[in-house]
């Protein structure tokens, strides 16, 4: 899923206070699961904004709505009636959702309420970790199902750097060294020979380096 974090309240307040009315839009998919921008987070944020406005005797109308997915045209259709009532929209979706809202409402100012952080997993309740960088050419088959692109601070493809110590990354001692994990797993699976193979230079053109990406499925387009 896409993991995000809410922007600091002070930053959101300074955004919202530029306007007399604002629509806080939550997103019901990824950011709901990671407790950053779902219905409850939208309500909490709206409550804080209302309180702050009242404390500073500032007139601020707040509308709240959470849609199933902000990254799909059909779901953001539901925002139309409320959007007409406000000066600006605060999107609690990932960057993709916030941008589709902006595209949908060309005359509205759209603000992001979240910082989109990574593609990751829920390790435990309340703990999320990065697992994928969306590089466009998956090589997990060569690395025992552990991605050195997303999980090594240096994207190293051919083994750990000199800073790997006791299984931990030199950049953050709380982070596992991806190559230590790969090494252990391949050994366990009896695939140690994979470690000896030099993984060739990566074609980054399928990654962000090739420019914004697009997927087209002719069998699905209408």
């Amino acid at each position: 899923m896409i993991v995000a974090e809410q922007k600091p309240i002070a930053e959101i307040i300074s955004i919202a206070f530029k306007h007399k009315s604002i629509l806080v839009v939550g997103c019901g998919t990824c950011v709901t699961v990671c407790f950053a921008g779902g219905e409850k987070e939208g309500k909490t944020l709206s409550s804080l904004l209302r309180m702050k406005a009242q404390m500073e005797q500032k007139l601020l109308e707040i509308e709240e709505l959470t849609v199933e997915r902000q990254c799909d045209h059909e779901f953001i259709e539901k925002i139309v009636p409320l959007a007409g009532k406000v000066e600006a929209i605060l999107s609690l979706a990932c960057g993709a959702g916030a941008q589709l809202i902006a595209e949908k409402f060309p005359d509205k100012i759209v603000y992001p309420g979240l910082n989109t952080t990574f593609l990751g997993i829920t390790e435990k309740q309340g703990i999320w970790k990065e697992r994928c960088l969306g590089c466009g050419t998956c090589l997990l088959d060569k690395t025992g199902g552990i991605c050195p692109i997303a999980r090594c601070a240096k994207n190293l493809l051919n083994g750990p750097c000199g800073g790997s110590q006791e299984g931990k990354c030199e950049v953050n001692p709380e982070t596992d060294c991806a190559w230590q994990l790969i090494y252990e797993r391949l050994k366990k699976l009896g695939q140690s020979e994979c470690l000896e193979e030099i993984i060739p230079v990566k074609d980054w053109s399928t990654s962000r380096d090739g420019g914004p990406r697009k997927v087209i499925r002719d069998d699905l387009t209408l």
């Binding site: 309240i9 002070a10 909490t44 309180m51 404390m55």
Partner: peptide, 8 residues
């Protein structure tokens, strides 16, 4: 923490 963030 939330209360602090808005000055309550």
């Amino acid at each position: 923490k939330l209360l602090q963030s808005i000055g309550i």
